[in-house]
Nucleic acid binder design. Structure first.
Lengths: 210, 210
DNA sequence: TGAAAAATACCTATTTCTAGGTATTTTAAT
DNA sequence: ATTAAAATACCTAGAAATAGGTATTTTTCA
């Protein structure tokens, strides 16, 4: 086994790929063996190249960073995955833990942090950007274990919201107190870290829930 | 006047700034004289440096790319501004034309296109990424808009609602009064005979608008 | 048979949405 | 040059959503 760390980089923005390439080109012990713009392209690259580290953008299309990460860890568990994220959103922290990624870094971070993270995860440890880590610690503990999965009741309510029902109408249809519906809605938004019902509807449609 | 083109780069993601810096460092006739992470920092830099080209991220905070561009063109009309955008969203095309920017480029584009754009706007012309241009041309005859007689502005607002923005946030992004956004939302719901924004989001997703 | 998860319900306070208006300015088209 | 459509902006008032709680009952499952 040779010493050269073989890297794949994936981001749908060419300019960002170009930047990453240049960053790594200054370090002779890193070699970028592949680049990709979609999750599918990432998986194709694994067929051709031996890859030690995959650096994935969280917002990459078809499939996204986390989904791609899961696929990688299934087929190539030895490969370490770094997820780059744009925003300091805890909406994805749970996904991070589920995905099997080794590092979760804000693009905000700077190249020093990226290189530092690679060192750390080469030792077999996980790395999370400090800013994200704070975010992560603020979440209630039992939330970590939890997945994105919604309860049947919550899904029911999301569907009724999609039909244009308000809390009161939902409560009548489900023979519940309006308070209960409000509580469920509150729980849903919290669980998914979404701002409001409009965003919830987008989320539900994008995930194919509705 | 010397030949060296003095560039300011602004983006709230350090990694992206690092990448841009490296891209330009390969070209001796470009000099990055300043970098910034917010609109305010951009304006401060103009106090200190003579700047020929400002490259701004559209999503930069306080104030955003377009607003910063307007400020620059007011105080330093000679400076050319390049707006970099993440997504191929027509929501911002209108802002582009109003802002006085000289180029509007997808981050997707690659460094060749960026350098090419700089050449073009040095001749005094404007540059828009080809993909964005198509988008722009398709805008007026949009099927969805036709079918449901929605205006471009209304579609813009629907998209921003889908991202979880409320009326106030939308007004900030589009440089409008909150009242105006509220009026648009009212007109949208009435026009489509929908009960509320949740139903509007379902509608928009089902029809493929979002 | 316990413990955990899910579902239920209530309370207060604040923010945002919705619905009813009116009205001016800009833009596009005839 | 005129008209229509689009975009802008303001006002009020009531409805609904959101955020912070607490707390009990029912289900599920190990």
């Amino acid at each position: 086994m040779n010493n050269l760390t073989k890297i794949l980089i994936a981001d749908d923005h060419q300019l960002f790929l170009d930047g990453l390439k240049l960053i790594f080109s200054n370090f002779p012990y890193f070699e970028i063996v592949a680049e990709a713009k979609t999750g599918t392209q990432v998986m194709d690259s694994f067929e051709i190249h031996q890859i030690d580290i995959a650096i994935l953008d969280v917002n990459m299309p078809k499939p996204n960073g986390f989904e791609t990460c899961k696929l990688i860890k299934q087929k190539y568990p030895k490969c370490k995955v770094i997820i780059l994220t744009m925003y300091n959103e805890n909406a994805f922290i749970r996904e991070f833990f589920k995905s099997g990624a080794s590092a979760y870094i804000l693009k905000n971070a700077g190249k020093a942090e990226l290189l530092n993270a690679i060192e750390i995860l080469n030792k077999g440890e996980k790395y999370i950007s400090k800013e994200l880590e704070n975010n992560f610690k603020n979440l209630p503990e039992d939330d970590f274990a939890k997945t994105f999965s919604l309860t049947p009741r919550e899904i029911e309510i999301i569907c009724l919201l999609g039909e244009g029902n308000n809390s009161n109408e939902i409560s009548e249809k489900l023979f519940l107190s309006t308070y209960t519906v409000v509580t469920h809605r509150k729980n849903i938004l919290k669980k998914l870290s979404l701002k409001n019902t409009a965003e919830l509807m987008s989320f539900a449609h994008e995930k194919g829930l509705i």
